[in-house]
Amino acid sequence: MKIIVDYDRCEANAICMKVCPEVFEVRDDDNLYLSTETPDESLRAKVMEAVRRCPRQAISVKD
């Protein structure tokens, strides 16, 4: 599983971080950071929830 963020669409509102803090982190500089682009399979459900919940459709996942 590989996470791709479209930083042109991301507005750093940190909704993904609330869903899956293991992977997504919005820092004080108003930017989104990924702790890893290829998280463990055990996080798949949470990551997919973040994909769905991101209001800006900025996250996608490649298998």
Binding site: R9, E11, A12, N13, A14, V26, D28, D29, D30
Partner: peptide, 15 residues
């Protein structure tokens, strides 16, 4: 729309 959004969203970041 994406172009405008990118411009004005600079004024609405969490910071």
């Amino acid at each position: 729309h994406s172009k405008y959004r990118k411009l004005v969203s600079q004024g609405f970041t969490p910071r």
